[in-house]
Design a protein around this nucleic acid. Structure first.
Lengths: 230, 230
DNA sequence: TCAATAGTGTCTATCAGACATTATATG
DNA sequence: CATATAATGTCTGATAGACACTATTGA
């Protein structure tokens, strides 16, 4: 269905110009309750900085989402529970299409030694400067998405408890939330979470008891939204 | 401050591959109270569709925002009151970095004959198919931004009345709003609008009277947000 | 048994939607 | 003068934040 003629822009095509198009992915997760990021060591790139996983736009590349997924697959064994385009960053001769991805807490990633707490790498001269700006935007995107989407459930492993979900919000937003109010709002939001079958409170089985367990709900968007504290 | 070494990605650079990078801009405005868009006629492109104003990423291009602004300048005399990157669309051999721009209602644009009511062009086979998807996303972006930012004031000419501002919301969202409640919320939102000097209600001058006049406020983000009706 | 955390319920301030009333402009 | 629209005020239901209280778990 792709039309060659239709693919040409209004302007004259400057083909073969010295432009590099690359796809970079910010993979966020939780590590010991802290927001963490996957980075590629300097040795791999020959650079003096750690970098975001990335790959250049090859001749056969057609879909940015597919490239992003393959970049992820090359650096992490974990299937992301969330992946979307962030925005595109431009510089002299380089166009970087950035993506954000999220995997649940404590999922085995490709190499734990390449996973760092965000606070330790940001502003530490550790990560490549251009990538720091991308990471900042990626984190802000996820912070914002926690408000009106159910991404938070992409950061916990199923089944999970309400307090576990609350700690996701607290870690990503960097705040503390009132447990009681948080619980009330989550359960009042249609499709956010659903009760796990073997939830307790009357379950007479001999299994170990504990907080109520939940699974991810079917809603992508939250009504009402979970707003950040002022 | 740009570092050539730092600009190379983790991967091998495929330079000179047959990739076209273009910047396309969706310029939205209001025309006779309806959401309208600037399009470039088929004759200019040699295509059989109308297109979004766009330009390819030249050798000297460094900043996408600058390219977007120059694309706009080539097709419209109006200075946009709002311009931001939307997202990047990828296809076989083409990478399109899309932007959204907004100019106030009734501003003289480069050529009114190239400005169309959105409802007339979308899904009419009039505009290039790939660009229809971009326009849809651009409109949704603006619809969403009306909720939590003050973009709406970028769509009216100063000074404006509260009902004029309300009609912006009604046109972009495609709904009707309660005048009384709308007014109360706008005026209760800090920094959204500010009173125009020669507002009436006691102004004893002999000038023609009318609804209260306002100017754009200083706030970019709205607290509280103006939520869309369910 | 004590401390920490999970879960439930209540109170209050705030905000959104609906509606009533008065003022102003235009035919 | 009559109608449409602007502006102001009031009422009610829903929601967020604060807090009190009980239940459960584990040291």
């Amino acid at each position: 269905v792709t039309n060659e003629a239709a693919a040409s822009p209004v302007s004259v095509t400057v083909s073969g110009a010295d432009i590099t198009v690359e796809v970079a992915v910010t993979l966020l997760t939780l590590r010991q309750g802290r927001l963490a990021i996957l980075a590629v060591p300097p040795q791999v790139t020959g650079d003096r900085f750690w970098s975001l996983p990335s790959n250049s736009w090859g001749v056969g590349s057609e879909d940015g989402d597919v490239v992003a997924a393959s970049v992820l697959g090359a650096w992490s064994a974990a299937e992301p529970t969330f992946l979307e385009q962030l925005r595109t960053y431009t510089g002299a001769g380089v166009v970087t299409i950035a993506y954000v991805a999220v995997v649940p807490e404590e999922t085995a990633m490709f190499d734990p030694s390449r996973t760092f707490a965000l606070d330790d790498v940001v502003g530490s001269g550790f990560v490549r400067p251009e990538h720091v700006a991308i990471v900042d935007d990626a984190v802000e995107r996820v912070r914002s998405k926690l408000e009106y989407t159910s991404v938070a459930t992409s950061l916990v492993t199923e089944p999970f408890t309400i307090p576990e979900l609350r700690r996701v919000y607290e870690a990503v937003w960097g705040v503390t939330l009132h447990p009681a109010n948080f619980r009330r709002k989550v359960l009042a939001t249609e499709g956010f979470v659903r009760a796990h079958a073997s939830t307790h409170h009357g379950g007479g089985d001999g299994e170990k008891r504990g907080p109520d367990l939940y699974l991810r709900g079917s809603a992508a968007l939250l009504h009402p939204a979970m707003m950040r504290p002022s």
